Computed example of a mutant assay.
Amino acid sequence: MSKLILVLNCGSSSLKGAVLNTENSEVLLSCLGEKLGLPDAYITFKVDGQKEKVDLSAQPDHTGAVGAMLDKLKAMGLDSQVGAIGHRVVSGGELYSDSVLINDDVIAAIEKCIPLAPLHNPANLLGIRAAQNIFEGLPNVAVFDTAFHQTMPEHAYTYAVPRKLYRDLGLRRYGFHGTSYRFVSEEAARFLGKDVHNLRLVVAHLGNGASVAAIKNGQSVDTSMGITPLEGLVMGTRAGDIDASVYEFLADNLNLSVKEITNLLNKQSGLLGISELSSDCRTIEEESLNGHAGAILALEIFSYRLAKYVASMAVAAGGIDALVFTGGIGENSDIIRTKVLNYCEFLGMNVDAEANLAARFGNAGIITTADSKVVSVVIPTNEELMIAQDTARLSGL
């Protein structure tokens, strides 16, 4: 068997991992480490549909979780076949427009970008250091969420604030979900039988974190997220676009600090805040069908805001040949897709109800009628495979 790739995606208290064979895209092992940093930390492995939970109390951190992965690979007889490790890194700022082999300079650059992703980059560094320690000698590759969006033109990424703030602090729009957009744009072109370098796509990556991007001729030309993943669409717990004066308003009326307001907008808003019910789209859809007013409103706002962004991204792309839905919500919510396409009917998209219902649970498919002027398609994303392919390429496997 060819050398395998280990893919790591680390959060502050979690670790998602997968071992892939890039030749056939097979996932041989996946795992999720949770409650890292707490005494009751654990990791759950999944192999051939079977799950196994392993206690990490002896070393309840990222290093312990990666060590448990090595133990599992040894038990499966696969440890010697892992040839390299790929890491999802949220922000590379303006420093990287492609994935890169990790060395001391790259680690320093990721540290430099911490102010641009204070919740994510420190966790990504924990995963890198854990992998270097546990899998000593193997090459590590950083795959940046921001890299794909480095092709955005200056007029798309520049905020209308004093230019000195950009020059001195790097205050600009960076965008995220770039690895997903890169995979999905290429896959959508293949699925539609088109050349991605001659295609105007608007892609909606919808999950607990949600964004939309304009991809023209294979390159990102605009996206909804900004300097952080808070800007843009309504999300599971994030407010998305909001008047910046809300900070002063809440500080004056509720005596909240900047940090507390940022926490409110990131973790207490979005679908959760509107519905006063849940951040989980599945729960909200179910309750909306039962007549829950907050759930009904949350779905409508989510869909309406997305539809407005679809139209604006068509401007950025110079037109629209296809609207692509991806991510957990984008791939599975026929209700939201229907709402968005109905709002976008003026652009020439007419939903095919039967096809839309069929395009769920990992099934790609066109969801517009044959007479639609613009096609809409569901394409499942696979960020892990994209990371693994980049890692194999850069490590020479």
Rank of each mutant, 00 (worst) to 15 (best):
L8A: 04
L8M: 07
L15T: 06
A18C: 12
V19M: 05
T22P: 07
S25W: 00
L28F: 06
L28W: 05
C31I: 01
L32T: 02
E34N: 06
E34G: 02
P39T: 07
Y42V: 00
Y42H: 08
I43N: 02
I43P: 01
K46D: 03
K46A: 00
D48C: 00
Q50Y: 04
K53G: 00
V54C: 00
D55W: 00
A58Y: 07
Q59Y: 02
P60Y: 03
D61S: 05
H62A: 01
T63L: 10
A68R: 04
D71S: 11
L73I: 05
R88M: 04
S91T: 11
E94N: 14
L95S: 14
L95K: 14
D98F: 06
K112L: 10
L116Y: 08
L116W: 07
P118I: 11
N121T: 03
A123C: 08
A123N: 09
A123T: 07
N124R: 05
R129D: 12
A130M: 01
P139E: 08
F144Q: 05
E154M: 07
A156Q: 07
Y159I: 02
V161I: 15
Y166S: 06
Y166V: 04
L169S: 09
G170S: 09
G170Y: 08
Y174Q: 12
T179M: 01
Y181G: 12
V184F: 13
V184Y: 14
A189M: 10
S211L: 09
I215W: 11
G218M: 11
G218L: 11
D222I: 10
I227C: 07
L230Y: 02
L230K: 02
E231I: 04
L233T: 09
A239P: 03
D241S: 13
Y247K: 05
E248S: 13
E248W: 10
L250S: 11
L254A: 14
L256T: 04
S257F: 10
V258F: 13
E260N: 06
E260D: 14
E260P: 08
I261D: 04
T262E: 11
L265V: 07
N266D: 03
Q268E: 15
G270V: 06
L272H: 10
T283P: 01
I284L: 15
E285R: 11
G291W: 08
G294L: 09
A295W: 06
A298T: 13
E300F: 06
F302D: 11
F302Y: 15
S303A: 15
L306W: 12
Y309T: 08
A311I: 12
A311N: 09
A311Y: 08
S312K: 12
G319R: 05
I320V: 13
I320T: 05
D321M: 03
A322F: 00
A322K: 03
V324G: 10
V324L: 11
G327L: 07
I329K: 02
G330V: 05
E331L: 06
D334H: 14
D334L: 06
T338K: 15
V340N: 05
Y343R: 14
L347A: 14
A355S: 13
A359M: 11
A364S: 15
A364H: 07
I367L: 08
D371Y: 09
V374F: 02
S376R: 08
T381V: 13
N382A: 14
N382C: 13
N382P: 10
D390S: 13
T391F: 04
T391C: 08
A392S: 14
L394P: 03
G396L: 06
